[in-house]
Computed example of a mutant assay.
Amino acid sequence: MRLNPGMENSTTDTAVHAARRERLRARLAEAGHKAILISHAANRYYLSGFELHDPQCNESAGMLCVTRNGPDILLTDPRFLDAARRLWPEEDIFIYAADRYRAMGEFLKGMGLPRILFEARSLTYDTHARLSDHIELVPSAGFVEDLRLCKDQAEIDLLRRSCAVNHAVLSRLPDVLVPGMTEAQAAWEIEKLFREGGASELSFPSIVAVDENAALPHAVPGPRAITDGCLVLVDVGGRVDGYCSDQTRTFWVGGTPSDRFRRTVDMVREAQDAALAALRPGLTHQEAFLLAQNAFATHGVAAAFTHSLGHGIGLETHEPPSLSPYAEGKLAPGMVVTVEPGLYYPDWGGVRWEYMVLVTDDGAEIL
C-alpha cells in the first residue's frame, strides 16, 4: 500500500488531525447532529491523514464517520487495511467487502446512528441510493470546507514550500520556451521540473498556450509550436507535502515584445496591483473581484476579463473561497487565495498573471 503524499504517521500529524476533528465535533453539537459521514477525499484527508486521493474517479478509498462524542470510525475496504492501520486505531477501523452498503448501514446503526449527515456535494447518487436503503441520510454542505477556509500555521508553511517549488520552475521557463518547442513538449518539460524539484505530482495538468490558444483560459497543450516572436501563457502548479501551488505567467518569446502585448500585460498587472493593494480581512469576495474589474473598465476592456479574480488553494487547487462577482463571504486571516486577472481575445491570444496570496491580520502577502 502507498503512503499519502508528503504525510507520515507522526505524533504531530495525529494531533493535528485530532484537533481538526474536535473543531468539527463542536460544529456538530452546535447544529444538533450526532455524526457526519465524510466522503469527499480532501476532507477525509484533512481530518484523518488517510488517502488524499481516491483510487479512480469511480472508486472510493472509503469514508470517515466523525461523531459528536466519539469514537471516529474509518470505513474502508481490504485494499486499504494496512494503510489505515498506520494512521488509525485498529479497533476504530471498519472493513467492508461484499454488500458494502448494507454492511456500512448495519454497522452505523449498531453505533446508535440510524440517522447521519452526509456530504451532499460529493456523495454520488448511486451510493446515496444504495446506502439510504439501510440508514437515513441527511444532506449537509460546508461542515468541513468551512474549517478549511483559514489555514493553520502548519498549512501555511506547507503552502509556502509548495509555492517555492513553483517559483523555481517558473524561473527555468525562459530556457524551456524556445522556438520549435511545441506546447505539449513544453508541458512535459515543466512536469519533469516539478518532479525534480520535489513535487509528488502536478496540482493540475499544465497549461502551455501559444498566441491564439492563450485566449482559452484552460487551454490543453497540443502540437502548436513556439515561434520567434510569439506570446506563451503558462499556468502551472505542483503538489508538495500534500499542498498545491498554482501560478500563471505570460511570456514573450523572441525579440522586442509587440506593443499590443506590452499594453495588455500592463493592464493585467495594473488590475492585479489594484486588487493586491486592497486585499485585507473584511473585504468581501465580490469587492475583491470588482477591484480588478473596475481597473479593466477604466481602459474599456472589462468584457475581455471572463473569469473570477481567483480562488482558494490548499489540499485542492480550487477550493473555497471564490473571488467572483457572485460569491458571498469576506476575506479573513489565514485564507490563501490566487489573484489572477486576465484579458482574452480569440483573434490574438490572452495574458494572465497569477500570484498566490496569504491574507494576513492587516493586509495580504504574496507567497
Rank of each mutant, 00 (worst) to 15 (best):
E119N: 05
E91M: 06
L131Y: 06
D133R: 15
A103M: 13
A129L: 10
L75V: 15
D99V: 02
R121N: 03
L108T: 00
H128M: 11
G105V: 12
M63V: 12
R115N: 09
L131R: 03
R79T: 09
P89I: 02
W88Y: 05
D77P: 01
N69A: 12
Y101L: 11
N69C: 07
H134A: 02
H134V: 08
L87M: 14
T76I: 06
W88N: 09
Y101F: 15
T127R: 05
S122H: 11
F118Y: 15
T127P: 01
R85S: 14
I135W: 09
D133G: 07
L131A: 08
N69Q: 13
E119Y: 12
A103T: 10
L87G: 14
M63K: 11
G62V: 09
F118D: 03
R115G: 01
L81Q: 12
H134E: 13
I73G: 00
S132Q: 14
D82G: 05
I73V: 15
N69I: 03
M111L: 15
L64H: 11
L81R: 15
D77L: 07
M63I: 07
P114Q: 03
K109W: 01
E90Q: 13
L74Q: 10
R100C: 02
D92G: 02
K109L: 00
E136Y: 02
I95M: 06
Y125K: 08
T76W: 01
A129M: 09
R85Y: 07
M111E: 13
T124G: 13
G105N: 15
D133I: 07
S122W: 09
L117P: 00
R130P: 01
L108S: 06
A120T: 01
R79L: 12
D82T: 03
D126M: 08
R86T: 08
Y101H: 15
T124F: 07
M63G: 06
P78Y: 04
L87F: 12
P114K: 14
F118I: 13
H128S: 10
P89C: 07
R115I: 10
A97S: 14
F94I: 04
N69E: 15
L108H: 05
R85P: 03
L108E: 00
P89G: 04
T67P: 04
C65D: 00
P114D: 03
E119V: 05
D126E: 08
D92P: 08
R85W: 00
E91V: 12
F107Q: 05
F118E: 02
C65W: 02
L75A: 06
I93E: 01
L117D: 05
D72G: 01
Y125P: 00
L123T: 12
F107P: 00
E136H: 08
Y101C: 07
I116P: 14
R68S: 14
R79D: 04
D92A: 13
T127G: 02
H128N: 06
L108F: 13
L117Q: 06
F80V: 04
L87N: 11
Y125S: 03
L64W: 05
S122R: 03
Y101A: 12
A120S: 14
I93M: 08
A120N: 10
I116S: 02
T76S: 05
L81T: 03
F80A: 02
R102A: 14
P114A: 05
M63R: 09
I95K: 06
A129K: 08
W88I: 03
E91I: 04
I73P: 04
M111F: 03
L123V: 13
D72C: 14
L131F: 07
S132R: 10
M111T: 11
A103Y: 04
P114L: 09
